[in-house]
């Protein structure tokens, strides 16, 4: 029988349980992350030696005429990408969730359908939309024609002015299911008595939603916002699939993920540069981290005080 005979020493079985997870996680996630942070302060010579350069890589990234326009451009585009997700994706998700949670018939069938694109790979989604929006096939044009709006049709993906918005909306189309389910879960979790009381007071559906339900699901709104933020500033697959690593036309769809890939591996005339890649990754890390910290310390704390 295994009793705690030697209290002082750490029980072996705890080590056995924890070791595989801790070792794999540390070696393949934590260590590479720290190594990337470290490499952003180094430069690699032609003899493959690492030399410490302090914050030189960051200065280069933020001021050099080759890097800075790309960095600020990608950051700006990423903010647009995120804003479109926050406004369009999360509003549609909230509307759909509110309808689904209203006790409507066939709610589970609707949920299954609306969640479907989320499980497909971004590569597939990217190509599907590329085909549909392709003027050669003309499917999108025919659909617009059916509602007499064909004058609106343009090769949206190919024009610098519309490419980023188009790609963002395709991403919204794919991922709207996730916030929808999270909002739905929060809405059906609201105690029925509260709704009952509101109905007795004679408030309309619209009023009940915004005055009672919405404030109650604010914690979920925060979770959705931070998930959208982390996902968007880490996005890569869709742009790479639809517009390649150069994120054309004229870098108009370039976001942090594609900038990171290009900087790390190089593209066409530009050579790949691991330490500059690590610098871009560290900037992404800082952006995501600041988002997470704002969420934890400002949003969650405020929600808690409101709840009290």
């Amino acid at each position: 029988m295994r009793t705690r005979q030697n209290r002082k020493s750490f029980p072996v079985y705890i080590l056995v349980f924890l070791a595989p997870a801790v070792i794999i996680y540390t070696i393949f996630m934590v260590f590479p992350l720290l190594d990337s942070l470290r490499l952003s302060f180094f430069s690699i010579t032609e003899q493959n030696r690492e030399i410490f350069v302090g914050i030189q890589n960051y200065i280069t990234l933020l001021t050099d005429s080759n890097y800075a326009p790309r960095f600020w451009g990608a950051l700006k585009n990423n903010l647009v990408f995120f804003t479109i997700h926050m406004v369009v994706q999360n509003s549609i998700a909230l509307l759909l969730a509110a309808l689904l949670a209203s006790g409507i018939k066939g709610s589970s069938l609707y949920r299954t359908v609306l969640f479907m694109p989320t499980v497909l790979s971004v590569v597939i989604i990217g190509f599907i939309w590329q085909l549909i929006l392709n003027p050669l096939w003309g499917v999108a044009e025919s659909i617009l024609q059916a509602v007499s709006l064909e004058a609106l049709f343009k090769p949206w993906l190919g024009l610098p002015g519309t490419a980023l918005i188009t790609v963002s909306l395709i991403s919204v189309w794919q991922f709207v299911g996730i916030p929808m389910i999270l909002f739905f879960a929060a809405l059906i979790g609201i105690p029925e008595e509260l709704m009952e009381a509101a109905r007795v007071d004679g408030s309309s559906g619209w009023q009940t939603f915004w005055r009672i339900k919405f404030p109650l699901i604010l914690p979920t709104v925060g979770i959705v916002a931070i998930l959208t933020f982390v996902g968007n500033f880490n996005a890569f697959d869709l742009i790479y699939t639809m517009k390649g690593a150069n994120a054309g036309p004229d870098f108009s769809t370039d976001i942090m993920g594609t900038l990171f890939y290009r900087t790390f591996f190089g593209q066409q005339l530009q050579l790949g540069n691991p330490t500059m890649g690590a610098t871009v990754a560290t900037m992404m890390f800082l952006i995501i981290l600041s988002g997470v910290l704002i969420y934890i310390f400002l949003w969650q704390r405020r929600i808690q005080t409101v709840e009290m």
Partner: peptide
């Protein structure tokens, strides 16, 4: 690791 995407460590991962 729940909040920090593993992709950000790609330079280190490839080296490893």
């Amino acid at each position: 690791g729940i909040m920090i995407p593993i992709r950000l460590g790609t330079v280190g991962i490839l080296k490893l």
